[in-house]
Every structure is written in structure tokens, then in C-alpha cells.
Design a binder for these strands. Structure first.
Length: 450
RNA sequence: GUGAUUGUAGCUCAGCUGGUUAGAGCGCUAGAUUGUGGAUCUAGAGGUCGUGGGUUCGAGCCCCAUCUUUCACCCCA
């Protein structure tokens, strides 16, 4: 049998894992610094938990797990009409936010609100893989649930900026508010078409004004309604200009005005508290597909001359009632999610990973035979007790082979302890970089490597 | 789901309009060098040409199907 792995999944080599862990640890450290605590949830959830939370597209991309116990046994042979629900009741998680909402409801009596949790785990989507798109990928989520304060939004933006500063990636942050989009839909008298409108508007930059108008008309909007959206197409300038013109448009929409207020609050607070940070850009065209967002919407893209990466690498927003469907209404949450795999792709592309050579074994002991190996193991053990990464070559192989092993592992020192050294209680240490050799006591060696 | 694209040695890839025994570089193994890695030289191992059908006297090359790779659309981290 020829080995293989499912489409859109990947193996990670030791070198890649070092890099990936660097990203995970950087994000995790920032989360911890801001008071977030970690949880994990199962890879699979009940389909009832997952379905209907991500829109029609999302449901299509859910990986469904076949029930165990031969679910097809009772079915007739030639492709019977069978409802998915009859053969599958579990699915792999599509994101971390919905399972988190489920977690909050199930554990509401143990949780002290506001609850600030982070979660770093893989998610699965049955997408067609392409650039920056995998069927298994890691999300690094931080959410605050049980607090309406806009200070949470402010904090999350600050976290984003700190993370990417630590990683060394230049970014741009875009900010929008679902209430503004709802206000616009209200304004043109098509409040129930908010999703269609936002999805179309989102493409403005990509496909241009005419195509967007065409798409809106196709979705059943009247010419008059589309005409009313014109100011949105023309919107430009700095944040204040955009917000001012939105205010003119939405002055009669209570929801819309609330969205504008929220945006202003977040931007003003950021400017006041973090005057040196990059400023999020107000962007009415930012839609984000996830159906459950109700307030702020955040998206981060790479803005680095060294990178061509155009997909978003972090996103988030506020959802006012995600726990409601699980039976805990009136609890608002807001969160962000870093796409670790895409971030790794970007770091790779721009060569911004730190140098991780030499973080493993520092010294390898050559194996000359049973008695020598035993003697060396004692020294190795003493070194490890001092916190020095050391290892003994397990086989009594040829010198060349053992040296090559050290070389390919980039181990900087090799210890040669044969009968001579055992007698004199010394260790011959070879520096693999310059080839120099010296004869040292254990204490000298500890001092050299420690 | 739609439209393209890819698959030949462990890796990166050649392989002419279909024509004898499918090649190279790197890597690997052994030796030159039995207590010294990288550099050099020599030798060697390694392939059902993604898979299954078809066309043909003859298929790595043409046709069909399928899987896989990569990319765009849709959507998204």
C-alpha cells in the first residue's frame, strides 16, 4: 500500500514544529499577559451543536463523522435516499467559537464572568485546498464572554498589535461594525438582505462597482435601493471622514448610529491609551461571513512589502447571543482568532523566523563499545542534571557514521571518551564548527557548555 | 460545488512528432581514511513512469475514468 494523507492535511517535520511552536508560544504568552486562561474542547462535536451556525456555505464545509456500528447495514444497496442525520450525528469542529459557546453554557455554574479564555486547537473544513487554505488548520482564539464593555474590543486590538509586533510582521487592521451594515440595510428598506448586501459590498475592491451593483440587483434589490447605497461606494478618506458621512446617511437609524458610536469609542480609546500603535482602518466593505457577528468586526491582513500574502491572518468580532441557542440568552461575547498556519506561511515567505539552530542537543558522546558507553552515560546523565542537552549515540557504529550524525543534527560538540580518557578521567571534546579539540574534566565541560 | 493545473528514483526535475535496456543532480550505502564530520574521488543500491481501463505492431508520451498536487471562483483562518 502506498502511504498518503488526506487532501489538505500536512505532516510537520521537527524543524517545522520548532517554528510552529514559536508562533503558538508567542500568541499564548500575549494572551496570558492579558489575563486569558486556556481551555480545550473535543475535536468532534454533536452535529446539532455545529449545524446552522456558519450559514449555508459553512454547513457544506462541515466534516461529518459516520456513526460507528455499520450505519449503512440496513440500507438497500443501490444508493438509497438517506438523510445525513440517519448515518451521522457527530462532526469535526469548524471553528473554536461555537464549541466555546457550548462550553460556556454547559459550565455556566463553574464560570466566573466575565470569562476570558484562550484556546489553541486545530479545526477542520471540507474546503478545496489552495494557497493559505488547509482542511486542517490551527486557530488561536481569545474571547471575552459575559461583558458588554467596548474595552474588550480595545484590548483585543491591542493584543493583535502586540502579537504581530513580537512576530515581526507588518499588518493592517480593519474595523467595521455589523450594526452599521444593518443600518444601511434598514436605510434602503431591505433589512433582511443584510447578508447579501454585505457580501456584495465586500467585493467592491476586488470586482469593482459595476459588478457589485449587478450582483445586488441579481439578489433581488430594487434599482432604487441600490441607488441609495451609492454613497457607500464613494466612501473614502480617513476614519473621521468616513464615520462622518456614515453618520449623515444613518442619522435616522438607531442601530446604525449605535454602530457608529461603538466605532468611535474603540478608535478614540485606542488613540488615547496607545498613541504609538498603528490605527485600525474603518472599512464599511468589511463583511466577514460568519453569521453570528452582531457588533464589531475585526480583520487583519499582512501589510508588508516582503509579502504577497493577501488572505486574512486574524479575524474576529462581537456576537451578542451565541450562547442563546444553547439556552443561555443575554450573554455577549467578543473574540479574535489568529490563523497560525497562515502566519507560519507569511513568516516563511518573508524570512522572519528567528534562527532556531542549536536549540536541541549540545553535545553528542561517541559510542566506542559497551564499557565506554556505560561510562559515558554517567557523564551524560551528570550533564543533563545541569540542564545541558546531551546524548549518547546508541549504537557502536563507525566513527564516520557517528560524526556524520552529529553533523547532520547540527550538534555543536562531540565528546570522545575511549579507554584513554576513561583512565585519565578526561573527556576529549571536539568543536564541530572549527574542528578544534580539547581535553576537559567534567567540571570544565559543564562550565564550557553551561 | 465550478474552472484550470500537476504526478517519472528518498528529494528536485530531464525524457524530442509514440520506437530497443527510462536518465541527471542532490541525498543514501560502501570504499579511498579500522579514534574523527563537512570537501574531493571511486563504486553501488534504488523505478509495476499516481492508479485502473482503452487505442496501437509498440505507450512515460495519445484517449477515458479515478485519485493526488497546485491555483482561481465561491467562501474563509
Amino acid at each position: 500500500m502506498k502511504p498518503g494523507i488526506p487532501k489538505g492535511t500536512r505532516d510537520f517535520s521537527p524543524e517545522e514544529m520548532i517554528r510552529r511552536n514559536h508562533v503558538f508560544h508567542t500568541i499564548q504568552n500575549v494572551y496570558r499577559k492579558f489575563g486569558y486562561v486556556q481551555i480545550e474542547t473535543p475535536a468532534m462535536e454533536n452535529l446539532t451543536t455545529l449545524e446552522g451556525k456558519y450559514g449555508d456555505e459553512g454547513d457544506k464545509l462541515l466534516f461529518r463523522i459516520l456513526n460507528s456500528g455499520e450505519p449503512f447495514q440496513k440500507l438497500s444497496k443501490p444508493a438509497p435516499e438517506v438523510r445525513t442525520s440517519e448515518v451521522s450525528e457527530k462532526g469535526l469542529r469548524y471553528d473554536l467559537t461555537v464549541p466555546f459557546a457550548r462550553y460556556v453554557v454547559m459550565h455556566q455554574n463553574e464560570i466566573t464572568f466575565p470569562f476570558k479564555r484562550f484556546q489553541i486547537q486545530p479545526v477542520w473544513r471540507a474546503d478545496r485546498p489552495q494557497k493559505g487554505r488547509y482542511r486542517e488548520f490551527y486557530q488561536c482564539d481569545a474571547d471575552v464572554i459575559g461583558s458588554n464593555s467596548l474595552l474588550n474590543e480595545v484590548e483585543l486590538v491591542r493584543i493583535i498589535i502586540e502579537v504581530f509586533k513580537s512576530l515581526g510582521i507588518q499588518i493592517s487592521v480593519r474595523l467595521n461594525n455589523r450594526k452599521i451594515l444593518a443600518g444601511l440595510a434598514e436605510l434602503i428598506g431591505e433589512p433582511e438582505k443584510i447578508i447579501d448586501i454585505t457580501v456584495a459590498i465586500d467585493k467592491l475592491e476586488k470586482i469593482g462597482r459595476e459588478k457589485v451593483v449587478e450582483e445586488l440587483l441579481n439578489k433581488g434589490l430594487s434599482k432604487d435601493a441600490v441607488q441609495k447605497l451609492q454613497p457607500v461606494f464613494d466612501m473614502g478618506g480617513d476614519n473621521d471622514t468616513i464615520l462622518a458621512s456614515l453618520e449623515r446617511m444613518l442619522k435616522d437609524s438607531e442601530t446604525g448610529m449605535k454602530g457608529i458610536f461603538e466605532m468611535n469609542f474603540i478608535l478614540d480609546t485606542l488613540k488615547d491609551v496607545y498613541p504609538n500603535d498603528i490605527v485600525p482602518v474603518v472599512d464599511v466593505t468589511l463583511a466577514r461571513g460568519l453569521n453570528y457577528y452582531t457588533g464589531s468586526i475585526i480583520e487583519v491582513k499582512v501589510d508588508d512589502s516582503r509579502s504577497e500574502f493577501s488572505s486574512s491572518i486574524c479575524g474576529g468580532g462581537r456576537y451578542d447571543d451565541l450562547t442563546g441557542i444553547f439556552g443561555l440568552p443575554g450573554v455577549s461575547g467578543v473574540g479574535i482568532s489568529f490563523g497560525a498556519d497562515r502566519i507560519c506561511d507569511v513568516l516563511e515567505e518573508i524570512g522572519a523566523f528567528p534562527d532556531f539552530s542549536n536549540i536541541s542537543t549540545r553535545i553528542l558522546f561517541v559510542n566506542f563499545g559497551q564499557a565506554e558507553a556505560r561510562h559515558c552515560l554517567k557523564i551524560v546523565s551528570a550533564l543533563r542534571d545541569k540542564g545541558i542537552y546531551a546524548e549518547l549515540y546508541p549504537d557502536e557504529a563507525k566513527m564516520k557514521k557517528q560524526m556524520s550524525y552529529a553533523d547532520s543534527r547540527k550538534i555543536p560538540f562531540v565528546a570522545l571518551v575511549g579507554t584513554e580518557e576513561m583512565k585519565s578521567r578526561k573527556i576529549t571534546v571536539k568543536n564541530m564548527e572549527d574542528g578544534s579539540q580539547s581535553s576537559l574534566s567534567i567540571d570544565d565541560l559543564v562550565a564550557k557548555l553551561g
